[in-house]
Amino acid sequence: MSDAVSALNGQTHDGFARVAEAGLRGMVTIRADLGSAALAGALAALGLSVPAQRGIVSAGGKAVGWMSPDELLLLCDYAQAPQIAADLTSALADEHALVTVVSDARALFTVQGAKADQVLMKLCPVDFATLPEGELRRTRAAQVAAALWRSGPDEISIVCFRSVAGYMMGLLEVASRKGGEIF
């Protein structure tokens, strides 16, 4: 476990916004009936709840986001993910569900600063002016799939596949270069 490294090992870049690969983050995919009481109970035990359509619920360093009508993505500490996945699997043992760790399959980025939106405006066909806090938007960043949400004041988090982390960093670096401010 000590040998685990994220795709870009925490690389950062300072432009008119700060972009960073956020390092290892635990992620668990849950495919299940989102109305299931067992699921609600299992998430409640983690201090979370089942998010509404396109929602993301955060609490205590964990978050769970709505990915599709039968899929959630749970975020937690990297080291916790296997245990949480195992707990969820047993909690959902009596129903049709798929719970699996995907921490290593993804890369997580943050874009920070008052002009963070402007970085992503250049890459994603999303109306950032109307993107509320608490919404997880799955979309496209240039040529790759991405999921993003407002993860703090002046901060947007973006998840993509691990193999394209370098490409994503390239996009964010170019889009945040000084002189490229839109407003």
Binding site: R54, W66, S68, P69, P125, T139, R140
Partner: peptide, 11 residues
């Protein structure tokens, strides 16, 4: 109709 988002063709 699943996620409710109005999205452009490139998605």
């Amino acid at each position: 109709p699943y996620c409710g988002a109005r999205v452009e063709e490139t998605e």
